[in-house]
Simulated scan of single mutants.
Amino acid sequence: MSSPGPEQAYLDIISSGGKTTEEAATAIFDQLKPVPPSFLIGEWVGADFDTGHPATQALVALKWAGKLFRSEEDVDPIIVYDEEGKRVWLESYGHARIREVKFRGVVSAAMAYDDKPIIDHFRYVNEDTMASMMDGKGVPEGYHFHLTRYKPAKM
């Protein structure tokens, strides 16, 4: 019996609640295919893997909801839930843009913050899911999160 491909292994971690190690998440991330910048366009819901990384608690405190990619030049990198549960841009994190960047040996779409030394790197899981790994100056390595296409509830 063969083991699942990296895409299914990634989805299995998500469906089991996201508890994994940084090493396991990185090993899967490194096997995933790149995505072009155009793939990112749209609104995404964010969640992370529970690896013990300090960014997890920071994003929980912010009530992180995801990201909004309007174009390659216009990105709201941190969307949060406000008091009414609406998705809103967190202005203090500024904006970002999308570029293709080589990271861990693969050229793929990445989001660079305009005012922070942080780059989020993306890989393909399926048409509605992206694997993500944050890289930043002064930020501990190994923060893994994932984005799922936002699909608002139909009224």
Rank of each mutant, 00 (worst) to 15 (best):
R123D: 01
I14P: 05
E83F: 08
L40C: 15
E100S: 14
E127L: 04
V139H: 14
L59H: 07
H95I: 00
A153I: 00
R123L: 05
Y124G: 01
S15D: 11
K102R: 15
D115S: 15
W44A: 13
K116F: 14
P37K: 12
G18F: 01
T20Q: 00
L11M: 07
W89L: 03
A27V: 00
I78G: 05
Y124D: 13
W44M: 06
D76Q: 15
K86S: 15
L90K: 11
H144S: 02
L59I: 04
S2M: 02
A112M: 10
S38P: 06
R123Q: 12
R104I: 01
A55M: 15
G138P: 13
I14G: 02
S3C: 01
E141C: 05
K86T: 10
F69W: 10
G138A: 11
P54Q: 04
D12Q: 12
V45D: 11
V60T: 10
M1P: 06
T21S: 15
Q8C: 01
S108Q: 09
S132E: 09
T129C: 09
T148L: 00
R97P: 02
Q31V: 03
Y143Q: 06
T20A: 07
P34M: 06
N126D: 15
I118S: 13
A153H: 10
M130N: 13
Q31L: 15
P37Q: 11
D115M: 08
F145M: 00
